[in-house]
Amino acid sequence: MRSLKSILSVCALTLAAAGANAEVVVIVNPKNPAANLSAEQVAALYLGNASTFPDGGAATLADQPESAAVRGAFYEKATGRSAAQAKATWARLTFTGKGTPPKELKSDADVKAFVASDPKAIGYVDSSAVDGSVKAVLKL
């Protein structure tokens, strides 16, 4: 009985740790006037339903590589869709001239550098990568 309990608590701890590791933060350039964004607003941008920030300014989207765990976690949490579903949506938009898919970068550091250097940029990174060069607008 006791051993089962300890196994369960280990499981719970592992799950909690995995959850903490997978915390995704949406970041924008410090010059962006938005103090925070809702998951719906971020989803609209990353599913091609909106191309501007709430203040009307154009948005340039950064994506993570397909192999990065943070990519799947971001799409699941922000849009309620898998990264593959978002890809099908972007294929539709790309080949009908209705949108340009997010720019795929190589790592958290690259996304952060991209967002820090472009006032129109938005991206997402693992929470551990966030620093003063960018502004966190949504924790997922």
Partner: peptide, 25 residues
């Protein structure tokens, strides 16, 4: 930001998926 124009060869949006109907993916 909200208005764009195109000119040339296009696929008309006759039905909901007309313009993307060739994109199997």
């Amino acid at each position: 930001q909200s208005l764009s124009f195109r000119g040339g060869y296009l696929r008309a949006p006759t039905f909901m998926y007309s313009d993307s109907v060739f994109v199997g993916y």
